[in-house]
Amino acid sequence: MTVKLRGIPETEAAIGWAGAHAVVVDRPEGKAGGQGLGFNGGQLLGLAIGGCLCNDLYYVAHEMGIGLTSVSVDVAVTFEGTPLLATSAAVQIAVETADKTADVGTLIQRARTISAVSNSIARGVPVRFPG
């Protein structure tokens, strides 16, 4: 999987894309030239963790034959130090099902087990900068 980012002319923001999907990346307005045109990197990290988990909840629900009527995932990422580093991510999950007897606990546990982004971060995925 590859994503690309390029600076947006006449701004200090960037646009990132993968396939036909795009997102704007920027700093908050007034911070280091930011205009608040899009998400910052920390927000994107939280969205990556939560978005991957949401998808996994739906994948597992389909495998288990469970119809989900509501999915809620909240991610709080904590940053500390200099340079600023993500030191933890707290995830809260709530799902509702059409079948009130469905095994929601197993559904959530299985989704957590296969969630690629949070598992990769937890295992310390290496980032390489050639050159």
Rank of each mutant, 00 (worst) to 15 (best):
A20V: 12
T11Y: 06
G38M: 13
A86Y: 02
W17N: 15
I108A: 09
R27I: 12
A20W: 04
D74M: 08
M64R: 02
L84D: 10
D99H: 08
V77W: 12
Q92V: 07
V104F: 01
D74K: 09
I108M: 12
A102Q: 05
V25I: 15
A122Q: 14
R6Y: 03
P130V: 00
T113N: 08
Q35D: 10
H21R: 11
V77M: 08
A32M: 11
C52P: 03
G50E: 05
L5K: 00
G65H: 10
V127G: 01
P83F: 07
T87H: 04
H21W: 06
V3C: 06
D26G: 01
V24M: 06
G34K: 03
E12A: 14
K31F: 15
I66L: 03
T78I: 08
R123H: 12
T2A: 08
I66M: 03
K4L: 11
A20G: 10
L53T: 03
L53V: 07
V23Y: 11
I15Y: 01
A22P: 02
S72L: 07
G7H: 08
K4G: 00
H21N: 11
I114E: 09
T69I: 09
L37D: 06
G19R: 09
L57H: 02
A90Q: 15
D56W: 00
G131S: 06
A111G: 03
G38V: 12
G33E: 11
A98T: 13
L45C: 10
G81E: 09
S72Q: 12
V60Y: 00
L53D: 02
A111L: 04
R6K: 13
Y59E: 06
A48K: 07
G34E: 10
P83V: 10
A122D: 13
A20D: 15
S70E: 13
V3T: 13
G51L: 00
A116M: 11
L68G: 05
N40H: 12
L5P: 01
L85G: 04
T87L: 04
A18L: 09
I49S: 05
G51V: 04
Q35Y: 02
R128Y: 05
E10V: 02
Y58G: 12
E12W: 11
G34F: 01
A86N: 06
A89Y: 09
L47K: 00
A13Q: 08
N40S: 03
V60Q: 01
G16R: 09
V104C: 06
L68R: 03
E63M: 01
L57W: 02
R123V: 04
T97P: 13
I49W: 04
H62V: 06
L47D: 00
A122F: 02
A14E: 01
T78L: 02
